[in-house]
Design a protein around this nucleic acid. Structure first.
Lengths: 366, 366
DNA sequence: CTGTTAGCGCGTTCAG
DNA sequence: CTGAACGCGCTAACAG
């Protein structure tokens, strides 16, 4: 055991294993790579040598010659956001189960970050990409086109992009929103605030302008707004721009806007919140005004959580199947990578309204 | 424009760019790789050719020859958990800013998953790893050793491993817990429940056994338990095993255990919860018993959130600097990758007690 | 300054 | 069934 080779510089390579086992590189490669045929005896020796040297295949080198990296790229708005964290978990769980790893990038809803992220993933030669894109128009999807042109399959998650023929896994935002608002209407409400709307400066005066503004922004938000309007329409309730929040989508802003709606001559008696921070922001305003729910204002929000259930009273919320959203997306992508032909279809998962106790009839004289 | 080359099979390579520009590969590589010197004129031609062909460097190939992948590996318990999601966001943000990308793997607290994850990262030749390890003993850290032996720097996050001389970025769990429990004691409580303790079958009868059990499990949990005991000691309050939750660390279990503590002859009048799910679980038990806080029971928990602030009354909570925890960890690791010599020190970040309204003196006759 | 050449570690023909 | 040789795309050391 004294005549050891000089001491290999880095981690052991397949050649060193071959040398150690006294066979050719190819034989070692075959047994270690699990392809071709090798006599049991040599196989045994190679395995032993690999074990002894602590050999681990260099995935980079393997990717170089095979052209596949066994890595998926994921682009979301914010990995720190519980919603996306859940989606990413779903993606990671199912891709890991099919032996793929995941490179995650956040964009914070900035298109240039999204483009940069796409380039990073292209450079790192991911086998496929999952994108929750902030892009909407034909004019803002060229980076996705680029990836596609390079032969990298892309599946959209959470946010569909109508100008792109692509597989997409989303939630039935519009219907979920409609159902929630309908619940409010059924309880007797006619003055229902929408938190939050498109991030524009000033509230669009007309319905048409509002929808147009929403269409220029996040797909999910637009859908939820449409669902809100659908419910209003069904009940013959006229749309009132004063009941739609505009401005930056941050908790503080939601608080301000709800405060405003609660101070209106004909104040809002119910609130529909399209996101978690919108719910807590709204709740702050309700509290500040010394109002209580559901007595003075009813409320339904998106994104259920354990907290919503322990509130007093517990909140009626919309639960999104976040994990499933991610796992389904990964499945669709992995199937394509394994040869399935892209169907370019939209998979819509159902959100569920969890009825608890934050909805009651409006007060007699608000 | 008609005499084009046959049509390169895959994405354009640097050789194709060189050919298009009419220069040697090296010249193209130099300008595109941004190293060495190239005459402005040729540089211009190369750039134009690259632009025209839509050239993007193959990061895999680059990694092959340079030996660096510009990729960090991150191993956490659960990317879907808001705490880790925040940490990972911190890591991603600062590593992205220094042009590193991140491969994230979840272990769900299973050691074999952690080992598998380490191997994946080794195979993919990450430049460094960040691990929130479930390992505690000398006997369970061999996979980390393996990575280290291969020359891959490792920095621990959130959970220190005392049997390993390694940089670690953690929070002062023990002091934060002590301060919280002290706050409860100062309010007059002497029967303070600890939710949750080590995941053992039956409550250890003695203090020593309890600490031993905790030491065999998660580092953070052990520290928080010690902080709880510290506060008890400081006040001369005897430790009562009946006030420590044991069993699986899931919300339902917390609810059960709190229910039990609330039904004790000498019932708990205050609750200290070491995690978010423990808080909501505890709250459920309080509600179920038709008790209210802080009148009947006081409560302080770990992991502040917007929800805690909008509860009625708002909850006094411990806020962990999650984003900073991640960014600091990434910084330490990146500094090492850029040549800083590992200090093998423990960086302790301070958690903050956010005093709101869930603490009051115990009721006269509980 | 520029072009030529030799690896990086592995998969994969192609002889033997 | 086995081993030698070539190529993946790029960097880097070496000539010119």
């Amino acid at each position: 055991m004294s005549g050891e080779r000089p001491r290999p510089s880095g981690p052991p390579t397949i050649s060193e294993v071959a040398a150690e086992a006294g066979v050719g590189r190819a034989t070692a490669a075959r047994t270690l790579g699990g392809y071709g045929h090798v006599s049991p005896e040599l196989k045994e020796r190679v395995l032993a040598a690999a074990e002894k040297l602590g050999y681990r295949a260099n995935a980079l080198a393997r990717s170089m010659s095979t052209g596949v990296s066994h890595t998926l790229g994921v682009i979301v708005a914010d990995i720190g956001n519980p919603f996306f964290a859940g989606v990413v978990r779903g993606i990671c769980d199912t891709s890991r189960a099919r032996s793929f790893d995941t490179l995650v990038l956040s964009t914070y809803e900035k298109l240039d970050e999204e483009i940069a992220a796409t380039n990073v993933l292209i450079d790192k030669r991911v086998d496929g990409m999952i994108i929750a894109s902030a892009a909407v128009d034909r004019s803002t999807v060229s980076h996705i086109r680029t990836a596609l042109d390079r032969g990298i399959p892309v599946v959209l998650v959470d946010r569909a992009v109508s100008s792109l023929e692509l597989d997409a896994v989303v939630i039935d935002n519009r219907e979920a929103a409609r159902e929630a608002v309908e619940t409010l209407i059924t309880a007797g409400h006619r003055r229902i605030g929408f938190i939050w709307g498109p991030p524009v400066e000033k509230a669009p005066a007309t319905r048409r302008e509002l929808i147009a503004a929403a269409s220029r922004n996040l797909w999910t938000d637009g859908e939820r707004l449409r669902g809100y309007l659908d419910a209003l329409d069904d009940a013959g309730i006229p749309f009132d721009p004063e009941l739609v929040m505009v401005g930056p989508k941050v908790e503080e802003r939601a608080t301000q806007e709800v405060a405003r709606m609660l101070a209106l001559p004909q104040r809002a008696t119910a609130l529909f919140c399209t996101e978690n921070d919108a719910v807590t922001g709204a709740l702050r305003a309700v509290k500040a005004r010394k109002l209580s729910y559901p007595r003075d204002v009813s409320l339904i929000g998106f994104d259920d959580s354990a907290w919503a259930a322990v509130m007093d009273p517990p909140l009626t919320m919309i639960e999104q199947p976040v994990h499933q959203l991610g796992s389904k997306t990964a499945e669709v992508l992995l199937d394509i990578l394994e040869g399935a032909v892209p169907r370019h279809e939209r998979h819509t998962l159902r959100a569920r309204l969890i009825v608890r106790s934050s909805v009651a009839p409006p007060p007699a004289s608000p």
